[in-house]
Amino acid sequence: MTPEPAVLDVRALTKVYGQGDTAVHALRGVSLRVERGDYVAIMGASGSGKSTLMNILGCLDVPSGGRYLLDGTDVGVLDERRLSILRNRKIGFIFQSFNLIPRMSALANVELPLAYGGVKPAERRTRARAALRQVGLGDRMDHEPNELSGGQQQRVAVARALVTAPALLLADEPTGNLDTRSTADVLGILDQLSLSGRTIVLITHEDEVAARAKRVIRLVDGEIIEDRRQAPVVGPPPAAVSLPEAAR
């Protein structure tokens, strides 16, 4: 039997901005593998290269050199159309600033990736409702973002990331704009998703957030200086959140 490919397989990635004396080497030969079901925190100070790596992993930027395989697909050989399809189907994004459409309901926001993917209205409505119930917002589906707290908006963003059943959840500072209680709620959801088998990569500068992951990678000046396994600190999930088999 052919072994299952890693969700992420990054080989000697480099990224250089500019040329000559003004060139900035944001990544210097980064290599890593993330297997299915792993929960990885990528840490680093400002200028370490973590945002550049995040953009490349999310297929939002291209490396200057090296190779990147996402769920077995070589990203570097894809044209923009196929890259867009891959990004929509394989990656669920969770952003620090939520990136919700202001005048659309929570339900409509969660439906968006399915609409882009050509899913029929009835099916995408059913799947979006299920995703919102997963994150404990079954009673907030018709609310617009300005009617929701920051923590609730981030839960909508998590539901939107989940609704396509992606190979990878990619979270960029997902608790950066949240208070302590909302941070605990969102991290509790990520804990439960990890326990159910989801593959999660998050970017964070906070040690207490990274402590929830199974593996911590540290970047300094565009290079990995630490890649270690750890016993994650798993907190209790929010009381309203239930993660049925559809979340797996």
Results as ranks from 00 to 15, higher is better:
residue 151 G to R: 00
residue 217 I to D: 14
residue 167 A to N: 09
residue 205 H to Y: 08
residue 154 Q to A: 10
residue 169 L to T: 12
residue 184 A to C: 10
residue 195 L to Q: 15
residue 210 A to N: 09
residue 157 A to M: 04
residue 212 R to S: 11
residue 215 R to C: 12
residue 188 G to L: 08
residue 166 P to R: 06
residue 165 A to Q: 11
residue 176 G to H: 02
residue 207 D to L: 11
residue 174 P to C: 12
residue 178 L to S: 03
residue 219 L to W: 08
residue 178 L to P: 05
residue 200 I to T: 10
residue 184 A to N: 13
residue 206 E to Y: 02
residue 189 I to H: 02
residue 154 Q to W: 01
residue 186 V to H: 00
residue 151 G to L: 00
residue 171 A to M: 07
residue 163 V to E: 12
residue 200 I to N: 06
residue 194 S to T: 12
residue 175 T to E: 03
residue 147 E to F: 04
residue 211 A to D: 13
residue 203 I to T: 10
residue 216 V to L: 15
residue 203 I to Y: 05
residue 187 L to N: 07
residue 148 L to Y: 00
residue 207 D to M: 14
residue 155 R to M: 03
residue 175 T to C: 04
residue 219 L to N: 11
residue 218 R to N: 15
residue 181 R to A: 15
residue 148 L to A: 06
residue 176 G to A: 06
residue 212 R to D: 05
residue 201 V to L: 11
residue 181 R to D: 12
residue 182 S to Q: 00
residue 183 T to D: 02
residue 150 G to V: 08
residue 176 G to T: 07
residue 170 L to A: 15
residue 156 V to C: 01
residue 200 I to P: 09
residue 159 A to Q: 03
residue 176 G to C: 06
residue 203 I to F: 05
residue 213 A to Q: 15
residue 211 A to G: 10
residue 160 R to F: 14
residue 194 S to K: 11
residue 182 S to K: 01
residue 196 S to P: 03
residue 199 T to I: 08
residue 156 V to T: 09
residue 208 E to F: 13
residue 185 D to E: 15
residue 152 Q to M: 01
residue 193 L to K: 11
residue 194 S to N: 14
residue 158 V to H: 02
residue 180 T to V: 10
residue 201 V to P: 07
residue 149 S to D: 07
residue 161 A to Y: 06
residue 191 D to T: 13
residue 195 L to M: 14
residue 154 Q to P: 04
residue 209 V to P: 03
